[in-house]
């Protein structure tokens, strides 16, 4: 059992519903405990409104919540840091460098008026004190790592010239160029079609092995999570419903909700019949 890299303890994130009078406090995440061990591929699965994205964004420190309670421990050089207690300045050393993020919509994460190569260089130079030339070399290396065929052309392209799948590969390159220990991926393949999704997932899985990366993967598709994870957490309405551990190559689900979620992704019933797990 390898040691814990990221430990979320009793996380509670609430927002103020200003639409109602008096304003109500709504807990988007209510008492979540999650652990990512070194080298693990952990998935956080839930439907819209389950709180999975808020959890991921809170790890980034990108949530403008009303109240955030609990602890998020990250192991850095044998020290355990509570990300929630760190100042913005301290967080800058962790965010983007030790913990990298990729989001669902690559188009909105990339600057549309700057060439891909330059964005990669900038990302590298933001975390490492190095020459521009070295940065350019490293950027090209990483474009190859994410299996982009024509590296030179991609380097010089603008985001709108690339397909969705290629943009997501660029995002992965940007995330990995800082040599992080943990990659947080928030629904990176949801906007892509199945073939591209399959390629991107395989890429992430292989990179995780090659670079000894730990992955926290957020998705609404349980069967997708099952195909790639070591550990799965299932969330509904802000609460953790079930924790699944892979034993002997398979997962055992106990909760009815989890079973429904899994069936929802498989579609192995007789075609053109009413899907039974829907209600």
């Amino acid at each position: 059992m390898s040691e814990a890299l990221l430990e979320i303890k009793n996380l509670r994130v609430s927002f103020l519903d200003k639409g109602s009078l008096p304003s109500r406090e709504i807990a988007a995440v209510d008492g979540v405990n999650l652990t990512v061990r070194q080298g693990d591929f952990v998935s956080l699965v839930g439907q819209s409104g389950s709180g999975k994205s808020v959890t991921a964004l809170t790890v980034c420190g990108l949530v403008n919540s009303f109240k955030t309670e609990g602890k998020i421990f990250f192991t850095l050089k044998d020290r355990e840091l509570d990300l929630l207690k760190m100042s913005e300045k301290e967080l800058l050393k962790v965010r983007g460098k030790e913990i990298s993020y990729i989001f669902q919509d690559p188009a909105s994460s990339l600057n549309p008026v700057i060439q891909i190569g330059e964005q990669l260089d900038e990302t590298y130079l933001a975390h490492f004190d190095d020459t521009k030339k070295n940065a350019e070399k490293r950027s090209r290396e990483f474009l190859q790592v994410v299996k982009i065929a024509d590296v030179e052309r991609a380097y010089r392209s603008f985001p709108h010239e690339l397909s969705g799948g290629m943009k997501q590969r660029v995002m992965i390159a940007m995330a990995l160029i800082s040599a992080p220990r943990l990659l947080v991926a928030d629904e990176p393949t949801t906007a892509l079609d199945v073939l591209t999704e399959s390629e991107i997932m395989k890429l992430i899985a292989s990179l995780r092995v090659e670079r000894r990366l730990s992955v926290l993967f957020i998705t609404h598709n349980l069967s997708l999570a099952v195909s790639f994870s070591d550990h799965i957490y299932v969330m509904e309405k802000g609460r953790l419903i079930e924790e699944l551990v892979k034993e002997a190559g398979s997962f055992k689900a106990r909760e009815a909700y989890t079973k429904r979620l899994f069936n929802a992704g498989v579609y192995d019933q007789k075609p053109k019949t009413q899907l039974l797990f829907a209600r």
Binding site: V194, E197, S198, S223, L224, V226, S227, G249, S250, F251, K252, A253, K259, F262, G265, V266, Y267, D268
Partner: peptide
């Protein structure tokens, strides 16, 4: 077909 791989016991 691969995505819904049967590594799931219910």
């Amino acid at each position: 077909l691969q995505m819904g791989s049967p590594r799931f016991i219910i």
